[in-house]
Design a protein around this nucleic acid. Structure first.
Lengths: 204, 204
DNA sequence: CCTCGCATCCGTATTATCCCGGATTTCACC
DNA sequence: GGTGAAATCCGGGATAATACGGATGCGAGG
């Protein structure tokens, strides 16, 4: 699957001319582009499930690029960000990088460098999404467990024997075995090893 | 344990006056300091097991701060780095941050900010060392296993039963049980769950 | 009101694992 | 050429886990 057909570059800049130039180049390279004239516009219109990356001007009227970055961080939206800037000053650049920006490039933008960096970001986002998708599949299974089953699983993962679990939860060993069976069933696990793996991976 | 007594700030700058001023402030705050006039001097004299952080001037005669950073990355030395600079230019700052610098501060240095950032870095290094120490304790145990035991462990962790493992390795089930026992012994694991956990954590 | 899912319990039978103690081959190191 | 560790094998008995089949109380929702 070509990453260009599944991903979108979100271009946020209040300079319409620059947006058009950048969008032109990206589209020429076969990359989908969505434009926003302001940070706010992006925040409300953006769909976090859409893979892609963010090309963000740092100096904008209204919300600045740094503020937008901060809001995205607060909402745990992990889209890769490339900051664009005209008037480069070091503290701002450092702040943006510390806030997790992948790159920080100065205008005037070099078309080839931009394309290269965008491509890197799209790949990064894609592999990041793969990882989180795997994790969320596990946690989805885990959330299908009842409270009791979850308790039993925690003790199982801690390596305790059924009889010990029974004693600790003050239920019969036979009941523990029942829970264990339905845990394995729901998690589609074929062994205790699988359960431990799923449990550990879901805890990052 | 006070982090200031166990950690050292490595101060690398070819400006002796600045070194003295910075070292004075750090020592006043109770922090150990080791000075180096050049990147090379640091590279040869530095002991990676010593906890601490690196205060690094970026423009130096001989090896530059960026080059030193690169060498440390190549050697997988993960000490936190604060870059200091007089003539700030954005691309260099961005490059340093992308290479993993924790911070990038411009001269003239503000004493209080410097102390705060240094403190953050020392804490970061300390917690990082804790994590890697835990990991290496596990992988140390793992490296104590014989080839055969390691093979058996991999199959155990994959959730296979002893009889299946025996069939796959073409050895008797009883032998698998022996190996299993010595694996548990060497890893100080009390259950299969423990083994899986150690195995997974050692694989990051 | 009745159903359905959850949590609880039970016996029995089979299978797997763990622990006891002992034994052989091979290979490397002294 | 002996010593020792690794890898292999064995039997038997205790303990634990799994599977089959069935049962009760309880609370939420149609």
């Amino acid at each position: 699957m070509d990453i260009r057909t599944t991903s979108t570059v979100f271009l946020v800049d209040d300079d319409e001319d620059l947006r058009n130039v950048v969008a032109f180049h990206l589209k020429n390279a076969g990359i989908h582009v969505q434009q926003y004239a302001a940070a706010n516009e992006f925040l409300t219109g953006f769909e976090p499930d859409q893979p892609g990356c963010l090309l963000l001007d740092i100096y904008m009227s209204g919300m600045s690029g740094l503020e937008l970055q901060k809001k995205l961080n607060q909402q745990h939206i992990q889209i890769p960000i490339i900051i664009m800037t005209s008037q480069g000053d070091v503290p701002t650049a450092v702040q943006a990088m510390k806030a997790g920006a992948i790159d920080y490039i100065e205008k005037p933008l070099d078309k080839d460098i931009l394309l290269e960096r965008v491509h890197e970001c799209l790949i990064l986002d894609s592999s990041h999404r793969d990882k989180t998708a795997r994790l969320s599949r596990y946690s989805h299974c885990l959330s299908g467990l009842t409270r009791r089953e979850y308790e039993v699983m925690e003790l199982m993962v801690a390596g305790k024997m059924n009889k010990v679990i029974a004693a600790e939860l003050k239920i019969s060993q036979r009941t523990v075995e029942d829970h264990r069976a339905s845990i394995m069933d729901k998690l589609k696990a074929k062994s205790i090893a699988d359960v431990v793996r799923i449990y550990l991976l879901s805890q990052y």
